[in-house]
Simulated assay, not measured.
Amino acid sequence: MDKNQKGIEYMQQGKWEEAAKVFVEAIEEDPNNAVAHINFGNVLTAVGETEKAMKFFDRALELDENAVAAYYSKGNLFYEMERFSEAKENFELAMKKGLQTGDNYFMLGMSLIQLEQGRLALPFLQRSTELLETDAEAFFQYGLCLAQTEYIDEAISQLEKSVELDPTHADAFYNLGVAFGFKEKAEKALEMFERALEIQPDHLLAGHGKKLIEQAIEENQ
């Protein structure tokens, strides 16, 4: 088996030391192998060695300026470091150089949200749901972004898909409650807040939303 493949298997098993050893061997055997540098950088990222990881991603790009996985990995690293402009730039570069994955579209959208550019994030988050058809979080974040940009009906549709995929997603139920409340569908909003609290009894926002809706229903009776 190829050393890079073996290292990836170790990573999937959470065996970081074994993975690192194999990737170092791969680099020593072929110092111009960009893939091995990216993989070793991903191991370093996983164990919190962010500065060292960045050097390996940069080295990979010196070896191959079209190594899209290096841009994607750098983007994730910058996102974790809350350097969202640099994260966005790297996800954009990965996309322009051919990385058309759901994860890259998702992270580009999330970077734009962190930069308070929600409307620009929408098409990337939408594309991520098309490519990540079973990813509840992708639908949740897309729905949340739609709600924040005041596309409430569309937001409800996406949040409902999120809870279909993950019936334990308390935050998705909470935000459905908010959206139904905005649409003045009090009974439906109450149901959603209650579902969120069933999943997560200490969900403070859902608890507060439930009280407000119950008060509103009482006043209208």
Rank of each mutant, 00 (worst) to 15 (best):
D2P: 04
K6R: 09
G7V: 04
G7N: 11
G7M: 06
E9A: 13
E9G: 14
Y10E: 09
M11I: 13
A19E: 10
A19I: 10
A20K: 10
K21W: 05
K21N: 10
F23C: 10
I27R: 05
D30I: 04
N33G: 12
A34R: 11
A36C: 10
A36H: 03
A36K: 03
I38N: 14
N39G: 03
L44R: 06
T45C: 14
A46D: 12
V47I: 14
G48V: 04
E49F: 10
M54I: 15
D58M: 12
R59P: 10
E65C: 02
V68G: 07
A70N: 08
Y71R: 10
F78E: 15
Y79V: 11
Y79Q: 07
E80F: 08
R83E: 14
R83I: 12
F84K: 01
S85Q: 13
E89C: 07
F91V: 01
A94W: 00
M95K: 00
M95W: 02
K96T: 03
G98R: 05
L99S: 10
Q100L: 06
M107A: 10
L108N: 02
M110R: 12
Q114P: 04
Q114S: 03
G118N: 04
L120A: 01
A121C: 10
P123E: 07
F124R: 05
L125R: 00
T129K: 03
E130H: 02
E133V: 03
T134Y: 04
A136T: 00
E137A: 04
A138N: 09
F140N: 07
F140H: 09
Q141F: 01
G143L: 00
L144V: 01
C145N: 02
A147I: 02
T149L: 02
Y151N: 03
A155T: 01
I156S: 11
S157I: 07
E160T: 02
K161H: 06
S162Y: 00
V163S: 01
A170N: 07
A170R: 08
Y174S: 06
G177I: 05
V178H: 06
F182C: 12
A186Q: 10
E187S: 02
A189N: 08
A189G: 09
L190P: 03
F193L: 08
R195A: 14
A196H: 04
I199E: 08
P201L: 02
P201A: 01
D202W: 04
L205S: 10
K210A: 09
E214V: 10
Q215N: 12
Q215K: 12
I217E: 07
